[in-house]
Design a protein around this nucleic acid. Structure first.
Length: 482
DNA sequence: TGGGGTTAT
DNA sequence: ATAACCC
């Protein structure tokens, strides 16, 4: 109210028809009056009522590291700095630094094409993701210090919901400080900033926090990256890529239509992938505008109501999906691709390698996997993407061995994996595989369950195995095929 | 095309 | 168990 912002200056604001849902998430810990405040009828609400009305407008930052693997490699070996550098997996250059990009190297180029374009290109092997993964989690943890709600996307992107942090800072602004508020980094579309508009003020504070985050990433981890600040994840992600390397951009609500219309094709919209793009093209939908104006009814019949409604909202820049804290990983997997694997022995050797690495990782994590999965890809000239998998519970006596640090946990697990393998592959017939992957998932914290407590009986590894040894053997034999 | 990840059905 | 999505 201090700012005397007029209700009518909300032209072009898109946000959150879903005020009720947003309230449900924002409600915890808010002032007691928040639920009783009059709910604004219009989407987004009256600007000066928004904070008390339960945060229907959010401030989200998307943080995107510059050519992440290449940066990690240059930190590992500073002699690589200043040289065109590519990170290689098999015969692909999966990413490269900006020196290499200037010389024409692109992401996911084959090594042959890249070397042809750029003979001086230095290549390092990046098939072992360990150091990338470790640095990736350091970044997420650093961001979590700003605000605990951090969602990872791959190894090099994070979303942070800054709504609460921004509101705290805004309320602490002294009267003179508001007029001195400035944007950090770029304003998308060079839009005019109105300090009388509370949404502008909040996004500017978001840009300030984004700058602090990037500064901390550089000072503490030596990493550079981009950031985008906007009112939802979709827009934050789109705007973070506008100025590219090591810069940041804030999107003010009035320019969101310009941003999404700047996309040349629906396939550039995050959330619309390969398959959906193909189906949309079959309907004659190519541009964002095509999708905006296409019949909702027909779209729902073609794609299903869920996908249809979600992507059509995306086409208007609307995205009410929350920033979901990622927390520790849900699964650990290791894979290896190759030209050909056609014997069981060969497969077993590869599987043993994959499993050995996984056990190291899972051991460091501390939690215990309760499910194991084997994934294969069969050779086929066309249908390349398709994978098959088999999974089964990990017998509890094996989980126990993980817990006690018993040395031979490999043998029983390899036995299980080979049973899964033979369940998928008829080893009496010729076969040709091009990928093997092992995944440990269904991770559970080791509860300090004591005998006689509820936890004890609800912990499968304790309540099924320790009472009868025979039963645990039976579990192994029958459940492995699952 | 690599070596990972997630959620929905 | 698969299929879609993300990097």
């Amino acid at each position: 109210e201090k700012l005397g912002v007029e209700p009518e200056e909300e032209a072009g604001r898109d946000e959150e028809e879903d005020a009720a849902k947003a309230m449900d998430r924002a409600e915890a810990g808010e002032a007691g009056c928040s639920r009783d405040a009059p709910v604004p009828e219009e989407p987004g609400g009256v600007p000066w009522l928004v904070p008390e009305g339960g945060s229907s407008s959010r401030v989200i930052v998307h943080v995107d590291l510059d050519c992440f693997y290449a940066q990690v490699e240059m930190i590992s070996n500073p002699e690589l700095k200043g040289k065109p550098l590519g990170v290689q997996q098999k015969y692909l250059v999966v990413t490269c630094n900006y020196e290499a990009r200037k010389l024409g190297v692109k992401k996911l180029m084959t090594v042959r094409d890249a070397k042809e374009k750029c003979p001086q290109l230095v290549l390092v092997n990046g098939e072992d993701l360990t150091r990338y993964r470790e640095m990736s989690y350091k970044v997420t943890e650093l961001l979590e210090e700003f605000s605990p709600v951090v969602e990872r996307l791959g190894f090099d992107e994070n979303f942070v919901d800054l709504t609460e942090m921004v509101e705290k800072r805004r309320q602490q602004l002294q009267s003179g400080e508001l007029s001195a508020l400035t944007v950090w980094g770029h304003v998308y579309n060079d839009q005019y900033v109105n300090l009388h508009d509370i949404l502008h003020v909040r996004l500017l504070i978001g840009s300030q926090i984004a700058a602090e985050m990037r500064e901390a990433m550089y000072n503490q981890l030596g990493l550079t990256g981009c950031a985008g600040v906007a009112s939802n994840k979709l827009l934050a992600k789109l705007v973070s890529g506008v100025f590219k390397p090591n810069q940041q951009t804030v999107l003010l609500p009035e320019s969101s239509q310009v941003l999404i219309q700047s996309l040349n094709h629906v396939k550039e919209m995050p959330g619309i992938g390969y398959k959906t793009t193909k189906r949309l093209e079959a309907l004659g939908i190519r541009s964002v505008h095509d999708l905006q104006t296409f019949s909702s009814k027909i779209l729902e019949k073609e794609l299903g109501i869920s996908v249809a409604q979600r992507i059509q909202k995306l086409s208007f820049g609307e995205d009410n999906s929350p920033v979901t804290p990622s927390g520790p990983p849900q699964s650990f997997s290791e894979e290896d691709s190759f030209k050909k694997c056609s014997s069981e022995v060969e497969a077993k050797n590869k599987i043993e390698e994959l499993l050995a690495s996984l056990l190291n990782r899972v051991c460091q994590d501390g939690r215990k996997p309760h499910t194991i999965r084997l994934i294969i890809r069969r050779y086929s000239p066309e249908n390349h993407c398709s994978r098959e998998s088999r999974q089964c519970p990990i017998p509890s006596h094996v989980i126990q061995k993980l817990r006690t640090g018993n040395y031979d946990v490999m043998t029983p697990m390899v036995d299980i994996l080979m049973k899964l393998f033979r369940n998928m592959v008829n080893v009496k017939m010729p076969f040709h595989l091009t990928l093997l992957s092992v995944c440990l998932c269904n991770l559970k914290a080791l509860t300090t369950a004591k005998k006689g407590t509820i936890d004890y009986y609800l912990t499968p590894s304790l309540s099924t195995t320790s009472h009868s040894g025979k039963r645990s053997f039976k579990m192994k034999d029958t459940h492995v095929e699952d």
